[in-house]
Simulated scan of single mutants.
Amino acid sequence: MDYLQSLRMFVKVAELGSFTGAADQMNVSSAVATRSVASLEDRLDARLLQRTTRSVTLTEAGRLFLDRVRSIVADIDDVEGGLLAATGVPSGTLRLAVQGTVGAGYLAKLLGAYTARYPLVVPQVIYADGPISLVEGRFDAALTSDYYPHPGSVVVRAVARSQTMLVASPRYLASVGRIGQLADLDRLVMLSHEDGASATEHDSTRRWLDANAPHATHIRANSSDMLRRMALEGMGIALLPASIVAEDIDDRTLMQVLPDTKLPSTGLSIAYGSRRNLAPNVRALVDFLAAQSAYDSLAAPVNHDDIALEEGA
């Protein structure tokens, strides 16, 4: 049996804790998945996985082996995927899941530029109001914030970071009086992001608001666009990525609050199922994002060699 394929199967089974799940993702039968790992164990003369009727866990030898081979397999798959993308023309449907923190206006610009370059690709965009599963949703990729908790079997690549802004409508600001220091926020209405799928300790904007306006009235939504619209309606002060509110600032429908205050930045990541046999349209999107500095002049580009990783590696 192919040695590299056995390594791939072992890594996938170890990450998912399931022969059946690994077989489904690699489009083979459970029997083939079992034989593949068994042949690897025979070759190494070592038990890598402990099987029970309810679970599959790594042995000590399996943990040591996984630590060494996971990055090797990922690197090989990345090289193969790049070569396949270079020889294939991006085309067909691109089914893309999007977390609510990614603004629709920004995403429309991004996809407009992408489809102009790859006119044979037809995007299908689904905004998610809950957990995103690439497998269950049959998504080719997902665009999420950098703190989104993807499972370990998903490849996650950071694209860019964007500065945030505190913004409010002129009408709201006129109604609350002068805001001259951070402490003033505690008596006001803050429009903040809430997403049960991703409200984690890594959400820098949520942690900043909790620390600096703990007693404010918080109106929450799981969509940055919804928070922007609430701000435009004069409902409070929102902490949003600069990329989402740049045009509103320019036309003065929103005003920046406490512009000299140091605020957290937010990140954009793309997640996809595997580096191996990555479809040309997905590979093209990954490379396109990497070249864009995603939020144009509002973002700092990311060193992709340092951050392209397999979540949980």
Rank of each mutant, 00 (worst) to 15 (best):
F139G: 09
P149Q: 03
L134E: 00
H202Y: 13
M190V: 13
H202C: 02
V176I: 05
L96I: 14
L83N: 00
T217Q: 07
Q99E: 14
L191H: 01
Q99N: 12
G105P: 04
Q181L: 00
A85L: 10
L84V: 02
G88I: 01
S204L: 13
V98G: 10
P119R: 07
S133C: 04
A197S: 14
S175K: 07
T200R: 11
T144V: 12
S198G: 13
W208A: 05
A104S: 14
R171H: 05
A216M: 04
V156P: 08
D186A: 08
D146W: 02
G112N: 11
G130D: 15
L120S: 11
V122G: 07
S133G: 04
A108W: 09
V121F: 01
L209S: 04
T200E: 11
Q181P: 00
R161C: 01
Q99G: 12
A183D: 13
L107T: 10
V156A: 13
A168S: 11
V167A: 02
L185Y: 00
S198Q: 06
L83K: 01
V155P: 05
E136N: 10
V98P: 10
N222P: 13
R161G: 15
Y127L: 12
G88S: 15
G152S: 14
Q181R: 15
D129P: 08
A211C: 02
L83E: 07
L111N: 15
G130I: 01
L111I: 15
V176T: 04
A199P: 04
R220A: 06
L94T: 10
G105E: 15
P119V: 05
M226G: 11
G180L: 02
Q99K: 10
M226C: 09
R138T: 06
A141T: 06
Y114G: 11
A160V: 14
G82C: 12
L107C: 07
Q99C: 08
V102C: 06
T93E: 15
Q181S: 11
W208M: 04
T115I: 10
E136F: 03
A160R: 13
D140V: 06
L173K: 03
S198H: 04
W208N: 12
